[in-house]
């Protein structure tokens, strides 16, 4: 079960002292992050030698990067996939055409929000829809990664390949949804600024 750990002994999960899983223990993550920064942060090395200060900046940056990656669900999923040597590609064709269609419709309505009689209500409807889809996709990822990570060496290799493929598709969906969510919030800010 721990073959990931054997292949990647210095992975971010181990660095931050949390289990390798998608459904992460965020409280523990934060606690351990603070404990680590307390021991390596440059503020603790203000009087140290140049070399120690440089090392401290590097280590603190590395730990910040690890936290940043694990804290965000999409980044965390991408990272987990990378531990299985899967790199996401922009040109991945594994996305469901129906999902893409749906995205286009949402985008279309987002671009017309400003012309509606109550743009904020309109925006809220879109945002609720996007957030619900994000929630569903997160649940998908959670279940997929649970299966992937509990999959032992002896079990069906083909099945694992399939699960990883599905997880990759879900991550790509998440990226679309995150972008759309951000655009909704940008739009909301723009509208608010014009008030």
């Amino acid at each position: 079960m721990n073959n990931i750990k054997e292949r990647h002994p210095d992975n971010y999960f181990s660095l931050l002292g949390v289990d390798i899983r998608f459904n992460i223990n965020t409280q523990k993550l934060t606690e351990n992050y603070h404990a680590l920064q307390r021991s390596v942060h440059p503020d603790k090395f203000a009087n140290a030698s140049d070399r120690e200060r440089r090392l401290s900046v590097q280590q603190a940056a590395h730990i910040n990067d690890a936290l940043h990656t694990l804290k965000n669900p999409t980044q965390r999923a991408i990272y987990l996939l990378s531990l299985y040597d899967i790199e996401l590609s922009e040109h991945n064709k594994s996305i469901d055409p129906a999902f893409l269609m749906d995205q286009m419709v949402l985008r279309e309505s987002l671009s017309q929000v400003a012309d509606k009689s109550d743009p904020f209500a309109e925006l809220e409807t879109i945002l609720v829809d996007v957030n619900a889809k994000i929630k569903d996709t997160l649940a998908e990822l959670e279940s997929l990664f649970q299966d992937i990570l509990s999959n032992t060496e002896s079990s069906d290799v083909n099945n694992k390949e399939l699960l990883l493929k599905q997880a990759t598709a879900s991550v790509l969906k998440m990226q679309f949804l995150n972008r759309l969510q951000e655009e909704c919030l940008n739009k909301e800010e723009d509208l608010a600024d014009q008030l």
């Binding site: 079960m1 721990n2 181990s14 002292g17 949390v18 289990d19 390798i20 899983r21 523990k28 606690e31 351990n32 404990a35 680590l36 307390r38 021991s39 390596v40 649970q146 990570l149 509990s150």
Partner: peptide, 15 residues
């Protein structure tokens, strides 16, 4: 040292 004693539950978990 920072995480000494904190990694225990990493072993034997569901991951």
């Amino acid at each position: 040292l920072a995480l000494a004693g904190k990694k225990v539950d990493d072993i034997g978990s569901d991951s």
